[in-house]
Amino acid sequence: MTFRGLAALMTLTAIGMSLATSGCTKKSSNSQELLHVSYDVTREICTAVNEKFIKRYEAESGKKLTIKQSHGGSSSQARSVIDGLKADVVSLALWIDINAIAKSGLIEPGWENRLPNESIPYFSTVVFVVRKGNPKNIKDWPDLVREGVEVITPNPKSSGNGKLSFLAAWGSVTTRGGSDEEAMKYLTDLYRHVPVLESGGRGATTTFLNKRIGDVQLAWENEGYLAVKESKGEVEIVYPPVSIRAEPMVAVVTSNTKKKGTSETAEAYLKFYFEPEVQKLIAENYFRPSDPQVAEEFKDNFPSLTMFRVTDISKGWDDVQTRFFVEGALFDQISKLAAQR
C-alpha cells in the first residue's frame, strides 16, 4: 500500500466521478420528470396520488414519467424554490408561501385562478392531539394555558402548521368576543407552555409521539389522525369548539416548467388533484375534500366545528404577515414576553 495504492484509489474515484455525472445527465425525449416540492405533512398522500397519476399519464401519452418529491417546513420549502430548487409544481400550506415564490418572479401572477376551486384542492383545520384518555382534560383553547400543561407546536416563522396554530389560537379569542389585547395576553401565556419550537409540523409530531414530550400537540387534522394510527391508540384527537380553516394551495412554477418543457404535464398533474377519484383518496388520508359530493360521502369522518377563515381575523394574508410574523411583529414580541416569564 504505497503510491501505487494511492494511484489506484484515485483512478477508482475518477471512475466514480464519471459514472456519477453520466448518471445525472441521462435524459431522453421519451421521458418526463416532475419535481413536486411540498410541505411536511403531505408525504403519504403525494406518494399515493403520484402512483395513480403516473399510471394514467404513461397509458395516455406512452411516455415515461417520474415524479420526485421534496418535503419540509412550508416556508422553508418556498425559500428553497426561491433560492433555485427546480420545482415544477409546489403545494404549500399557505397562500403567503406560494405568493412569496410568485413575488420572486418564478410563478406568473394570477396563479390562484388558473386551477379549479381557487387552487385549493382540499382543506383542513388545527386540532388538539392529546395523550390517551386525555389525562389533562383538554377541551378548549383556554385549557392549554392551565398550570402544568405543555404544548407542542412548531415555529410559526418557518412552518405552516406553526402559523396556523398561532392564528387559530388568536382567532379562538377574537372570534369569540375577545379583544386584541386579550388575544395577545393569551398567546404570550400559550407560548410560555411550549417547551420546544420545532421548525416543521413533522418535527413537532416526532417530538410529541416518539420523544414523548408535551401533553397536547396543535396539529393539522390529518397529521392528528396519522399520529393516532401510528401510535396504535396512545394518543387521541380532541376537537376544540372553534378553530381555523386551513387552505393549502397548489401552483405550477411556470418559470421552471417553461425551461424544462414540462408545463403541460405539470398542469395536468395538479388538475388531477381536483378529480373525484383523487378527492376520495385525499379524504381517505384525512384531508377535507373540496369536491362537495366527495365531502358528503365522507362527512362522518370529519366532525363539524366552527372554522373561521384567515380573512375573519385579518384583512388577508399580507396583513397577517406584517401584523404577526415579520421581524419585530407580534410573534416576536410575544416570544420575547414569553421568554421573560
Binding site: 419535481l35 418529491q69 413533522r202 409530531t205 416526532t206 409521539l209 416518539n210 401510528e230
Partner: peptide, 19 residues
C-alpha cells in the same frame, strides 16, 4: 429530493420524520 440529492444522513433524518 428523494432518490436524487439525498445522502445517507439526510435519508436517516427523513425516514425518522416519516415515522
Amino acid at each position: 429530493i428523494a432518490g436524487s440529492t439525498e445522502t445517507m444522513p439526510l435519508r436517516v433524518d427523513k425516514l425518522f420524520h416519516e415515522h
